[in-house]
Design a protein around this nucleic acid. Structure first.
Lengths: 171, 171, 171, 171
DNA sequence: TATGAATGAGCCTTCATTCAT
DNA sequence: TATGAATGAAGGCTCATTCAT
């Protein structure tokens, strides 16, 4: 792949992330192309289908999240990651609309990272030992989605997370 | 012919509920008409706009939920309602996509019903006294949304709810 | 035909005349029914086709004009009629949109009335003898149409008619 | 591919001019596409709205008329232009239906051209000095519209114009 | 005869995808 | 490889007309 092709791919992904984050997955591919500064044909050359483009975004997003998680750790790592994720507005709408796009591998790696945070938190005694990775992931996704719905101001967000954290906490 | 019209209205709402529950709000009005067994024009006669149709469904759905909630009560009412809601597949996708359709009144009534359940649970000592209605609603919505995303089998659903309930529980 | 049927027919025609005069022939038949205070089915019972309704309106309109013309006469009858017609806003849009609806008989009778006015004017020496009925009718229609187009204020209307009248005038 | 696009744009305008001239502005955009030999999407790529297409036609039409008028002049320029315009069947229905589409600039330029013809005719003594541009424009539009209505054969057209010209003539 | 709900063809418009340049 | 014009299948919606009540 030529250097400029590589550069275009990146631009397209960036543009797509922004466009879909703002307008949802229903936004048109043309708008992505426009923001990326390329022609529509170029988008389809790199991502033969709109779904491919969505999947690529999600994959990259998940990879970043996994990387982010990997940088954390210790007793509060899980809580920090959880909170941070819920705060990221951009990442959020994505997750909602991308339902159906399957990128099991990337999700798997994110799951691994979260699992590691969970392990450390349990080791440090911050989180109950009988909580498993699947339910933590489920809660993570749930609260992110929920945050998208209504007018969660910071206070509500904090109180909602507090309940979840209390549920996870060791007695 | 008032009777026919009434019957058709009901059929259309039922069909719409099913179609949108399965395919999301992006599903076509034509498909609703087909499932309802009426012509497309009939759908638009009853609901002049697709958004009107969506709003009508949501309104009815919320009314049912509120009614459902009103029938519960006691120490475990909130938990029962919470669990039941998460189980209802049909109701779920709806909530995701219907965001933006404003039916404040209906939502308000649902909130009231949930608030009442919360009050009773707190009175019975099942739920912490420092938890407010807003965060309970937020958790409700969140977990419903989350349940839509992945392959939540019954076990995962139960374990996820268990964490939330633990978070709500009085010590 | 029953008395109430007769009455409905009249109401429908009146409503249609008003609706089509204001919104043009593209206005919906439903709106006519609404204004007439009858159900849509009743409109179609009296006028099996929208075109039939339009034709009926035009016919009645032309009949009235002919009657109007018949009441005039003398040296200035033609000029008076001509001017009056151009002033009638309601009658105008009609004529534009009703193109294609053929009501030769009614037009014929109007033509007769205008012809008579022309004859009298020529006899009185107000109008040149070598002008025929067809061109007078053509001018009548033309100026009515023209008046529909732009912002003909009264002054412009008068000056435009003045040119036409000068063209018709005996030297 | 600029060339193709340009060619298509032209084809579409030509097709639209013909279709709308024959069937009126109510004709479907699909028919325009069919006659132009392009897909419906292509029409909408060039003219995002039906109204845009209508406006474009009218604009081009008026530009041609203005250009045509600019090529004339002298004592009979106005009469020639007037007659020619009335003869153009294609141009005519357009003007009827396109009312409401605002292309003031183009209309303005046409008015200028006609004004110039009028000035020259008055200078040459062919037309009365007390006739203004507005009423000439009004007559122009009127007779064009009128010509659209009925069965104006050539003779009737000539005789009708003769009256108008007599009205304009200096004594 | 009146009512008004139902029908369904047809319209304008959007957008993912293809393909000639 | 990039461009961007062309394609054409839907989709939402309107409205003349029919028909059961």
């Amino acid at each position: 792949m030529r250097a400029d092709a590589e550069r275009n791919r990146g631009r397209i992904l960036d543009a797509a992330e922004e466009v879909f984050a703002q307008r949802g997955a229903a936004a048109s591919t043309e708008e992505v192309a426009r923001l990326a500064g390329v022609a529509i044909g170029t988008v389809f050359r790199h991502f033969p289908t709109k779904e491919d483009l969505l999947a690529a975004i999600l994959k990259r997003l998940l990879a970043r999240l996994a990387e982010d998680a990997a940088g954390l750790g210790g007793a509060d790592g899980l809580h920090t990651f959880f909170t941070r994720l819920v705060q990221q507005a951009a990442a959020r709408r994505m997750v909602v609309d991308l339902v159906g796009v399957s990128v099991p591998a990337a999700v798997g790696r994110l799951g691994d990272a979260v699992g590691e945070l969970l392990r450390q938190a349990q080791e440090a005694g911050t989180v109950r030992g009988d909580v498993g990775r699947p339910e933590v992931m489920a809660l993570l996704v749930s609260v992110c989605q929920g945050a998208l719905q209504g007018g969660w101001d910071e206070g509500l967000q904090a109180r909602t997370l507090a309940v979840v954290f209390a549920g996870l906490a060791a007695r």
